[in-house]
Every structure is written in C-alpha cells, then in structure tokens.
Design a protein around this nucleic acid. Structure first.
Length: 350
DNA sequence: AAATCCGACAACCGCATCGGA
DNA sequence: TTCCGATGCGGTTGTCGGATT
C-alpha cells in the first residue's frame, strides 16, 4: 500500500503516523469493549443505521476508531450474529468452500448465515490448522486436503446423518470403492492413523474436488438401514438442491471464472455423480477440464456421466473418444429422472 | 493451591479497493 | 486523472478462562 506522505508540523509524515498522532491526541481506547461502549454503539446504530464508521466514531461519544466500531458491530453486536459452536453442517461447508476458494473468509462467510469471517478464520486456524500442524504437513498441501476430504468430511456427514435420525442414531452409511473407507469409524477421529490411508486412497481418487462419502446406488447391494442412513446424510440443507446447467450459469453471470461445467448449488453433500452407473459420490462443481482429466484417466471408449441431486434434478452427458459433448448437449433425461426417483425412494427427499 | 500451558476468540493492524470530489 | 477518505479483507496479536502439572 502506498504510504501517502504530507507535510506537517513534524515535517514529512506518513498517513499512518498522522493517524497514530491523532489517536494519541484523542486518547483513543483500545482492547476489550465495555458494556457501556457496546450500548453507545448499538444506540447510535439504532438511530442512524450502519455505515459511515468514522463519522459514527466521532459523533457517538465512543473513543474508538471507526474501524474498531465497525468490527465490533459486525463481529459481535449485530443482531443476526449466530453464537455457539459451529454445527457439523457448517463445518462441512467451511471445509468444502475453503478447498475451493482458499482463505477467502469473507466469501466463505457469505454462505454461512449468521457467521462472521472472523469466526470462520478462527475456526480454521484453531481446529483445522492444528490438525495439519500435528501431522507436520502444510494445511494447504494435497495430502492434508485429501485427508480432510476422505476422512474428516465423511465423519461430519455421519454426524449429520446421526442428528437427522436422533434419538436412535443409525449405523454409519456404507462406504465403499476404497478399502481405506472401511476403517472410518465413529470413534474419536485419529487423523494420524488415517493419513497413510488417505495417501493410498488419493492414488485412485479422481476429480480433485470429489470427496468420498459414497452412497450405494443400488439398493440390492446394501442393507436398507444403510441406504436409509446414507440417504439421511443427504437430507436437504437450506438452498442445497438445485442443479444448473453450465450455460445458464454463464448467462446469469454466476460463474465468475467463466468456466463451463456442472454446479450443484452450494452443498456438495447433495449432489451425486456417477459414471456408467458407478457411483462416484457427492459432487459440487466440476469444470469441464476436471471431468475430462478424470475421464481420460479412467475410461476407454465411451461413457455416460450423470449427475443428480436429492431434489430430483438430474442431467447427463456423453464422453467418447477423449472428448465430451459440449454444454449445450446437457439434458435431463428419463434415465436420470428414474435414478433421481430411486434416490427419493431411499429417503433422499424428492 | 499456585504456576504454567494452551485453546478459543476478540480485537488490532496493514494493505487493497472503491467511489466521490 | 489524481487525490483521498471510507470501507473491506486477511494476517496477526492479545486476552481470558479452563486444563494440566
């Protein structure tokens, strides 16, 4: 940032120095807010509304900077702030969105109503990064991300499934496709124990942003209790069930990177992806290139890929000879609708 | 019981961006 | 076009309370 300098009584002085001097002259307060200060701030905002924080700081009688007032309001006093521990759903969403956007705390917070960017950032630093530190790996490393995707997220989904069927928690949903999955348990999670398994699983995992809480697509191959539990894990969360075609996404400007692909609104937990009938687990957003990479690495000849959500929306497209049909060939067809109905029969909530 | 450690979270700081003058 | 104030964002620090030694 530019350090703007202006001439003053002390000679050339940076803007920061000027501010510091002004603060000194006004004896601005720092540190924890008192009840009186909170009341002053709330009363002022009740009368004049949010915004214009510097003016607020000057006129409210608070000996605080505008910045400090804004932060106190947004992170603590605002009426719609949600207090208390993050729910498994919220934790899942944070892990999910962070894997997609990185440290874009504010952007992530927009998807968690009532939670602040500060709260999410603190959660990440105290909980998630702690795990990474204990493993002596970087929290942004591929290995750690895969461990999160393969083991932490499924455990959160189990928690969600358990909560949905309380007071009698169901058995964990069937997890398959990777032998390592069989070791996932509801006991206290031991990240260290699973790290090696995560590394092994990574070798055969595919679209990079797929995590593996697989539901069995075929009722005949799983117990009804297991299917119910699996479906329960996909019970609708707010705003989570819309599948949009890429062209719609682009025309509506919802994809800021202009990428084509498939997007299952917000909660990956509700999307499911299959390839020629083989369940690939929940899906969120797949760029065309991601899908193509995967298909190229795992398919010979042709294949049909389908996606569906718990609300019953579904789509598919064809892969043949190393290429995919373009976005305009996406269609919602009978096959997918039938599959979606099937999911509904298992309790997916169509 | 006292000292120390540690996790959680509130608050601060530096910088970037935006919009109006 | 430039300047500058306001606001927002992400990284870092400070504080407090509970757990542990």
């Amino acid at each position: 940032m530019s350090q703007r300098r202006v001439a003053g009584p002390m000679g050339v002085m940076s803007k920061q120095q000027q501010e510091a001097m002004a603060e000194e002259m006004m004896e601005l307060r720092r540190g924890p807010w008192t009840l009186e200060e909170d009341n002053l701030l709330m009363n002022y905002i009740a009368c004049h509304g949010e915004g214009r924080w510097n003016l607020l700081a000057r006129c409210s009688g608070l000996k605080r900077t505008g910045k400090s007032c804004r932060l106190r309001w947004l992170n603590y006093l605002k009426p719609d702030i949600k207090r208390g521990n993050l729910t498994p759903e919220e934790q899942l969403l944070i892990l999910e969105l962070h894997s997609k956007w990185g440290n874009r705390w504010s952007r992530i917070a927009q998807h968690l109503p009532g939670r602040t960017d500060n709260e999410i950032k603190n959660y990440w630093r105290t909980r998630v990064q702690k795990q990474a530190r204990q493993l002596k790996v970087d929290a942004n490393s591929t290995v750690f991300r895969d461990a999160v995707r393969c083991y932490w997220m499924p455990r959160l989904l189990e928690k969600m499934a358990g909560a949905a069927t309380d007071p009698t928690p169901p058995p964990p949903p069937p997890l398959h496709h990777h032998a390592a999955m069989a070791t996932v348990s509801s006991s206290p999670f031991d990240f260290d124990t699973h790290l090696q398994q995560a590394e092994a699983a990574t070798a055969c995992v595919v679209p990079n942003n797929v995590y593996h809480h697989h539901i069995d697509p075929s009722p005949s191959t799983s117990t009804s209790a297991g299917s119910t539990a699996a479906a329960a894990a996909f019970q609708p969360l707010p705003c989570f069930s819309e599948l949009r075609w890429d062209q719609q996404m682009q025309s509506s400007g919802e994809l800021d990177d202009g990428a084509a692909g498939v997007f299952v609104d917000s909660a990956s937990a509700l999307g499911s992806l299959s390839l020629d009938g083989l369940d690939l687990g929940p899906a969120e957003y797949y760029s065309d290139s991601t899908l193509l990479d995967y298909l190229n690495s795992s398919c010979t000849g042709s294949a049909m890929m389908t996606m569906m959500t718990a609300s019953g929306n579904a789509g598919s497209y064809n892969y043949c000879g190393g290429a995919m049909d373009g976005g305009d060939t996406w269609r919602s067809d009978e096959v997918c609708q039938a599959a979606a109905r099937k999911l509904g029969e298992w309790g997916g909530g169509i």
